[in-house]
Amino acid sequence: MKLHSILTGAALALGLAASGAMAQDKTKVGFIYVGPVGDFGWSYEHNEGRLAVEEAFGDSVETVFQESVPEGADAERVMTQMALSGADLIFSTSFGYMDPTLNVAAKFPDVKFEHATGFKRADNVSTYSARFYEGRAVIGHIAGKMTETNTVGYIASFPIPEVIRGINSAYIHAKKVNPDVEFKVVWVYTWFDPAKEADAANALIEQGADVIMQHTDSTAPMTIAEEKGIVAFGQASDMKNFGPTAQLTAIIDDWAPYYVSRVKAVMDGTWESTDTWDGIEPGMVAFAEMSDKIPADVRAEAEQMIEDIKSGAYHPFSGPLNKQDGSAWLAEGETADDGTLAGMNFYVEGLEGEIPQ
Results as ranks from 00 to 15, higher is better:
Thr216Gln: 03
Arg77Asp: 12
Val348Arg: 02
Asn345Ile: 12
Asp199His: 08
Leu14Trp: 08
Phe95Ala: 03
Met82Cys: 05
Val152Trp: 04
Leu248Ile: 11
Ala10Arg: 11
Asp193Val: 03
Gln66Ile: 11
Pro316Tyr: 05
Asp275Trp: 14
Asn168Ser: 06
Leu51Trp: 09
Pro194Arg: 09
Gly312Ala: 03
Glu54Arg: 08
Arg77Cys: 02
Ala105Val: 08
Glu197Trp: 02
Ile355Thr: 02
Glu71Met: 01
Glu62Ser: 15
Trp42Leu: 09
Val298Met: 12
Ser157Thr: 09
Ser318Trp: 11
Glu55Ser: 14
Pro36His: 12
Lys26Cys: 12
Ser218Asn: 02
Trp277Ser: 05
Lys176His: 14
Gly38Glu: 13
Ile224Phe: 06
Ile306Met: 12
Val266Met: 07
Ser311Ile: 10
Ser60Ala: 15
Ile252Trp: 04
Phe346Ile: 12
Val211Pro: 02
Leu16Phe: 15
Ser291Glu: 07
Pro109Ala: 04
Trp42Ser: 04
Ala288Leu: 10
Val125Ala: 08
Phe183Lys: 04
Gly86Lys: 07
Pro221Ala: 01
Tyr44Ser: 11
Gly339Ala: 15
Pro109Met: 06
Ala286Glu: 13
Phe183Glu: 00
Ser43Val: 01
Asp254Thr: 14
Asp292Cys: 12
Ala195Met: 13
Ala195Pro: 09
Gln207Met: 13
Thr27Arg: 08
Thr27Asp: 04
Thr245Met: 11
Arg131Leu: 11
Asp268Ala: 06
Pro244Lys: 12
Gly135Arg: 00
Leu330Phe: 05
Ala106Phe: 04
Ser273Pro: 03
Val298His: 06
Ile90Met: 04
Pro257Phe: 04
Asp99Val: 15
Asp39Lys: 08
Gly58Pro: 01
Thr274Asn: 13
Leu7Phe: 14
Gly243Val: 07
Ala288Trp: 07
Val285Tyr: 00
Ala75Arg: 06
Asp275Gln: 15
Ala122Cys: 13
Ser218Trp: 04
Ala336Trp: 01
Tyr171Ala: 07
Ala256Tyr: 03
Asp193Lys: 10
Asp338Met: 15
His315Val: 04
Phe65Tyr: 15
Phe317Thr: 01
Lys112Gly: 10
Arg262Cys: 09
Asp210His: 02
Pro194Lys: 08
Ile205Val: 14
Gly333Trp: 04
Pro159Cys: 08
Ala52Asn: 02
Ile230Cys: 03
Pro282Leu: 06
Ala336Gly: 07
Trp329Leu: 03
Ala328Val: 12
Ala87Lys: 07
Pro194Ser: 00
Asn178Ile: 11
Glu162Ile: 12
Leu3Pro: 06
Ile164Lys: 01
Val298Gly: 11
Trp329Thr: 05
Gly333Met: 09
Met344Glu: 12
Met146Ala: 08
Val298Trp: 04
Pro356Trp: 13
Ser327Phe: 09
Asp297Pro: 09
Lys145Tyr: 10
Val152Lys: 10
Ala13Gln: 13
Ala174Glu: 01
Gln24Ile: 12
Gly353Leu: 05
Ala23Lys: 10
Ser157Leu: 00
Ser291Cys: 00
Glu76Trp: 02
Pro244Gln: 11
Asp110Ala: 13
Pro282Arg: 10
Lys176Arg: 15
Ala250Asp: 05
Phe95Val: 13
Pro316Phe: 00
Tyr44His: 14
Gly58Asn: 07
Ala11Gln: 11
Val64Thr: 14
